[in-house]
Design a protein around this nucleic acid. Sequence first.
DNA 1: TTGAAAGCGCTAACAG
DNA 2: CTGTTAGCGCTTTCAA
Lengths: 345, 345
Amino acid sequence: MTDDIKIPPRRPLTLKDVSEASGVSEMTVSRVLRNRGDVSDATREKVLAAAKSLGYVPNKIAGALASSRVNLVAVIIPSLSNMVFPEVMTGISEVLDDTPLQPVVGVTNYLPEKEEEVLFEMLSWRPSGVIIAGLEHSDASRAMLHASGIPVVEIMDVDGEPIDAMVGISHRRAGREMARAICKAGYENIGFLGTKMPLDHRARKRFEGFTEALAKEGVEVMDQEFYSGGSALKKGREMTQTILERSPDLDFLYYSNDMIGAGGLLYCLDAGIDVPGRIGLAGFNGVELLDGLPRKLATMDAGRREIGREAARIIAGRSDGSITETGQRVELTPKLQPGETLRRW
Amino acid sequence: MTDDIKIPPRRPLTLKDVSEASGVSEMTVSRVLRNRGDVSDATREKVLAAAKSLGYVPNKIAGALASSRVNLVAVIIPSLSNMVFPEVMTGISEVLDDTPLQPVVGVTNYLPEKEEEVLFEMLSWRPSGVIIAGLEHSDASRAMLHASGIPVVEIMDVDGEPIDAMVGISHRRAGREMARAICKAGYENIGFLGTKMPLDHRARKRFEGFTEALAKEGVEVMDQEFYSGGSALKKGREMTQTILERSPDLDFLYYSNDMIGAGGLLYCLDAGIDVPGRIGLAGFNGVELLDGLPRKLATMDAGRREIGREAARIIAGRSDGSITETGQRVELTPKLQPGETLRRW
DNA sequence: TTGAAAGCGCTAACAG
DNA sequence: CTGTTAGCGCTTTCAA
């Protein structure tokens, strides 16, 4: 009986295969597999058994085309390699896990052209929603998003006009509040250290808010230092040394993110500089890492996880019809964490 | 002329719309948009102009169904929140960026059931390939992967039998080599600190290789300490303090990852412990962060970026037909980085 | 170089 | 509760 040898199917199984194996119509098989409509227990059992034994995996492509429903949520972010966006992802996953929706991630590396590409690619899959970082996009990107008719939530930032919904914090305000806290603590010679990233609009806005609030107190940023690429912790060290050698009078350093701030803190401690007595330090983001440093860096928690959750809730709600409004605007409040690198006042 | 008011289309545009707008058949429009087959320049121009002015975005769902070609690569990883997988992702993106393929990420949180779910979900989109972390999967997962007929690359680990291709390092060997280096440096009372994660098979294999090689030298692990959740840096501090108080004779601490190792290092420096004289330290992964620490932690680079690149190359090659073999096995060599926390011998 | 016809595998809508 | 009939928007195939 050489005919007995089973050749494993190279062709993926279809509903028809399950239908034939179970003796139930394709339509009913489809109903069972989606838990839709009423099906008798007996039929259900038969179908389930057949599907399982065959190892049937439904073809969502066909399903999506037929139903014009796609349970995918496009998430478009600039980077995965700093701690901030993975945490947003965690928030998104947390709420989508309780829905039929699935996140699909695209990374833009802070490049508008890349964003456009990724967006086009993702929109061509007709997702149920788009969650995209930032409010600044190319005209083409905005047009696509607009024309798609798909729910869009722009996240992280609320300083600007959203295409549809937005969830985030005001980075201008975050910068202002940090400036006020610093002045209140009595620091006067303030330096700024950040990334060499003209396209990081949120960092830019924080800096703008920061200088604006300082100006109100009659203070100006005394010196600045920028970096790009490499280990942020190491860069933080190096930049700190550089700026302090150049401007020894500085008594406060404001970093555009916690990683370089942590590097700066390690440098100061190594160099025997009194923190926060001689020099105060502050970062931005509120990353978990800070918990393990020798001294806790002052920072401002951006509520990244909560931003992810809230954005996902909006998409999920619109997708299942429980939310019908559009244009939601959710502003979260960044929380100042004074840590131990800011003088008590 | 009130009829002049244009109501923006809620219905997504189709090929037909472009066809009508340009006066060219749907088929030819399709050819132009995909750069397939010969089309006269004149027609091409017309079509492109029409598509652009309408803001047409092709429907990949329909395209994929018709052509049974899906330019998606499923990437299934346990977590995004430690530094390791984002770096693998970077490697994957780097090579897929030069292809028509797009990565789609699914996260399993180290849970086999979740892995099964995510896998099922992703396979039902009929991706061009699957890149999945680890060699340990549930029977159901293995069966699905097998039956799918889709190229599968299991990554990170090579200690086991792959379903199809695999790319990674031998964690057993990594553990053994670290053990040898430690013994050679003259340390004798060795402690191990790791995660409380029975499902992290790679950490387990490293530990097995580690103890095995120690045993050959007549050495046993003297004490162990485990943690779960929270800031790894902080936990590293705490665990180190705990284990050293309990076993003051320890002269070496082997950490299952660099983050807790870094925490341990910071603790030792704070406590004024002579590193690597009194106590040696080593971690695992080779994360960039180590560059900025006061002293460079000994570690073993797992080549995560390269793993991602290699896996993506295999998928891309099979997908474009430039590779026809299956079952590739690529073992990368982890590189010991002695840093400054291991005595020179 | 262009077009017409026939599905891809599934589900909506309706009929029984 | 179950089945039948039409497509979903695109690409394949074949013909002009």
